[in-house]
């Protein structure tokens, strides 16, 4: 199969711990199979700077926590056929959303002002503006497949991705759950 015929595959890392990507790497030798089946066009694991057009499958790890995240998602949604919320942070906002009950201001104050005696200041330069509330991916863009799990197991990821590549609709909740 030539590179032109292969499905174009991408992954994205928003506000999360990268554990879902680690679990992805845990697929071990199947990664070689996958590499044969798809063309990986964008990912924190590869060296591509700009999210390309005409992507078939994008896995999104992490919750939406900044204005930059929203802009990325809108762009990626427009360029992706099947968009997958990958892991609990993308699906539920999970641990990153644990700051929500307190409000952004209180959290920033606690982290950057109250507990930093040497140089207390809230960073504003070259860092993206944080949203007041961390939200799951589907609050911003349409999501086609949800894979809960913290992280989803390598077996779950393999099963879902291979079903999708085979043109089937995976029954994800038979494989995983929140917090799995």
């Amino acid at each position: 199969m030539s590179a032109q015929d292969k499905p174009r595959f991408a992954t994205l890392w928003l506000d999360g711990c990268s554990g879902c990507h680690m679990s992805f790497l845990d697929m071990d030798e199947w990664l070689l199979d996958l590499a044969g089946q798809v063309e990986v066009v964008y990912s924190p694991l590869v060296d591509a700077k700009e999210f390309p057009d005409n992507v078939d499958i994008t896995l999104i790890e992490g919750a939406v926590a900044s204005r930059e995240d929203i802009e990325k998602l809108l762009k990626i949604r427009a360029r992706t056929k099947t968009l997958i919320a990958f892991g609990d942070c993308a699906v539920t906002a999970n641990v990153p959303s644990m700051r929500n009950p307190f409000g952004l201001e209180a959290v920033m104050k606690q982290v950057y002002l109250d507990s930093n005696a040497i140089q207390p200041q809230v960073p504003t330069v070259t860092v993206p503006e944080l949203l007041d509330r961390v939200v799951p991916v589907h609050r911003i863009v349409k999501v086609d497949v949800y894979i809960p799990g913290c992280p989803p197991s390598a077996a779950t990821i393999k099963s879902v991705v291979s079903e999708l590549l085979a043109g089937k609709k995976p029954d994800v909740m038979a494989l995983t759950r929140f917090g799995a």
């Binding site: 427009a78 589907h138 349409k142 999501v143």
Partner: peptide
């Protein structure tokens, strides 16, 4: 439109930007 509601610049969205 969602991009207005989220307060970000409108994009050249091809897919409907909303949840299923």
């Amino acid at each position: 439109k969602p991009e207005e509601a989220f307060g970000v610049a409108s994009t050249q969205a091809e897919h409907p930007i909303e949840e299923a």
